[in-house]
Simulated scan of single mutants.
Amino acid sequence: MNQRKNKPVIGISIGDINGIGAEVTMKALLDNRIQKLITPVIYAHGKAMTFYRKQLEMEDFNFMQIKSIDEVHHKKINLINVVDESPEVLPGVETHEAGRLALAALDHAIQDLKAEKIEALVTAPLNKNNINSEELKFVGHTEYLTAAFEANDSLMFLVSEDIRVGVVTGHIPLKDVAKKVTSENIRKKLNLMLRSLTDDFAISKPKIAVLGLNPHAGEDGLLGDEEINIIQPVIREFKDKGHLVFGPYSADGFFGMMHQKKFDGVLAMYHDQGLIPFKSLAFETGVNFTAGLPIIRTSPDHGTAYNIAGKNMADEGSMRAAILQAYDIIRNKGNWDEEE
């Protein structure tokens, strides 16, 4: 992406307007540090943001509606209406209308990413249920963006200051996990993690821990043989190539002893094995980053939280961290020169 003057433009797709996405976005963007670093563009609808501005008594939150990304104003919070009709906002209620708007916001942002009009995308939480239809099977942001940018593969990478966790298998049923824990898949995810830690996080010689699949990492074959037959050989391959890759470790003992602090990245075998400890340790500051794409995408690590939507109870820490992480990755990848 060509370097330009002004500030990097970061898009924010609003997600489900009946969840906490609008609230955490507004609160995060009121942070003066963020407004000094980036030019935000919210993909949503002005009525929804105005509703929450009044509902949450955030009169100091102001935005400028623009028709397209080409009208972006670098001294304002910009907003693009992604649907023509004014949506009904019902905090805490799952509606098909909110699902349509969430998908429209994501699609509009994707088009601007493809046109290189924005430097990164931060996705606010959405609800898969009200997006899914007979025409579209929406599994998650990660899979949708991977397909949209025709990437061969991607890595769900949960990151925070003291812990970075990626997963070999993501949004699939637990009964299918073992079948997907193959040498090829582990190899792909390790390569993606190594490349991301180097390029996106500016770590010259990353050190990675690989977790086992079975309890106690298989107990030398007593509790499963995937560690012996699949995981260990791949680790040896990477070590032979000079990479700092270690394991397989028993997940419970690894996180129980806080060993994640000794590594730049941790590769878990499946979703909950990695995300439960991550969210336990870094829920308020955690960021979901999709590594391996030709674009930069981050997200807060929480969901729509319907139960507190519209009640001014949502913590914006993860959304703020997601925006700042996107900005840091832009700089680390050399896509921005602050001295211009």
Rank of each mutant, 00 (worst) to 15 (best):
G292Y: 05
P233D: 01
G274Y: 03
L281H: 09
V266N: 04
T304R: 05
D252V: 02
D337V: 13
G242I: 00
S318M: 04
L275Y: 07
H259Y: 11
D337W: 11
G221R: 02
K333L: 13
I330K: 08
D272Y: 10
D328C: 06
I230Y: 03
D225Y: 09
R320A: 14
A268M: 06
G334L: 09
H259K: 15
D240W: 00
N335L: 15
K279W: 12
L223C: 02
S299W: 04
I330A: 10
F278P: 03
G310L: 02
F254E: 00
D252P: 00
A217G: 11
I276E: 05
I329E: 08
L222K: 10
T290W: 11
R236I: 14
K241L: 11
A314L: 08
A305N: 07
Q273M: 11
P248R: 00
L275S: 10
R331Y: 09
M269E: 05
W336V: 12
L293N: 07
G247C: 00
D301N: 13
L222A: 10
L324S: 10
D264N: 15
K311P: 02
K333S: 08
K311Q: 14
A321Q: 15
E338H: 13
I323N: 04
E219W: 12
G221L: 05
D301Y: 02
P277R: 06
R236E: 14
G265E: 04
N288D: 10
